[in-house]
């Protein structure tokens, strides 16, 4: 049953992506309901999948790398539904769907590996892991908004903007969105880290170092950006680079967690 939910949600994101590509190709893109509906359906099915899995495991379903990727994709989709729609960020759904789909496809093809033995035992570890993934949902969406910022900035600086220019939001809206998502993600990430330190279970030093590196990079990025030392373009680039680095380190951190 859970497999059907996972396939169903992947299809929803695939529909959103296909619809966007088809509309853009035809030059008739109208941002709005379809992408929101598709992402909402995809997120619901992901939520159902995670619930089924959680009830089987009697713990938060983030014990293997594929589960972590699905949880991360779900967090990004939820943040999109909360923020992308309220700020009327047309096209954000179109950018969100492929990222979540990519995570989901990776979750299907990556071998499950060893199951993290500690989670489900220590509630602080459980809180730390789930809050960190929720934070990465916001930070992932800031990466998407950053990409949209760079695309729109390029369009505005170009002498011949393409059709996508008309559908993307103003750069100022995207710059504000990147900063807000960075701030929201950073706050949740910090709480998640604090929960990790309250855990009774010992955490490997290398894992702490990697996590601290990501936290410090986000803290520096946010401090420079909010103080005005970093312009909108560099903030957008920073949001993308740090998230991609975090994504690359995720398997390493996951592996270190399973080693206990």
């Amino acid at each position: 049953m859970e497999r059907a939910a996972l396939i169903g949600s992947s299809l929803c994101y695939l529909f959103a992506l296909g619809h966007t590509l088809f509309s853009l190709f035809k030059g008739r893109f109208r941002p709005g309901r379809f992408n929101v509906a598709a992402v909402a359906a995809g997120a619901s099915l992901q939520g159902w999948y995670l619930t089924l899995l959680g009830s089987q495991l009697h713990a938060c379903p983030i014990r293997t790398l594929p589960q972590v990727l699905v949880f991360l994709g779900w967090s990004i989709a939820l943040f999109y539904l909360a923020i992308g729609t309220s700020y009327r960020l047309s096209l954000m759904g179109a950018f969100t769907a492929p990222v979540v789909l990519l995570l989901q496809v990776a979750a299907v093809f990556i071998p499950a590996g060893e199951i993290d033995p500690v989670r489900g035992v220590d509630p602080w570890i459980e809180t730390h892991a789930s809050l960190s993934l929720v934070a990465y949902g916001a930070l992932g969406l800031s990466c998407i908004a950053g990409l949209m910022y760079l695309v729109q900035e390029r369009q505005l600086k170009s002498r011949r903007p393409s059709a996508i220019f008309h559908d993307l939001p103003p750069v100022i809206t995207l710059a504000v969105t990147v900063r807000r998502l960075l701030l929201a993600g950073f706050v949740v990430l910090t709480i998640g880290f604090a929960a990790g330190f309250l855990a009774r279970t010992p955490i490997p030093n290398v894992k702490i170092c990697f996590s601290a590196l990501i936290w410090l990079l986000y803290a520096g990025l946010l401090a420079d950006s909010l103080s005005g030392r970093l312009g909108n373009r560099r903030t957008a680039q920073g949001a993308m680079l740090v998230f991609l680095l975090a994504l690359l380190l995720l398997p390493v951190i996951q592996r270190l967690s399973t080693l206990g």
Binding site: Q152, Q155, L156, F165, P169, P170, I172
Partner: peptide, 9 residues
């Protein structure tokens, strides 16, 4: 006007 709106909202 459109360019200004796409920069400043």
């Amino acid at each position: 006007v459109e360019l200004a709106e796409k920069i400043f909202g």
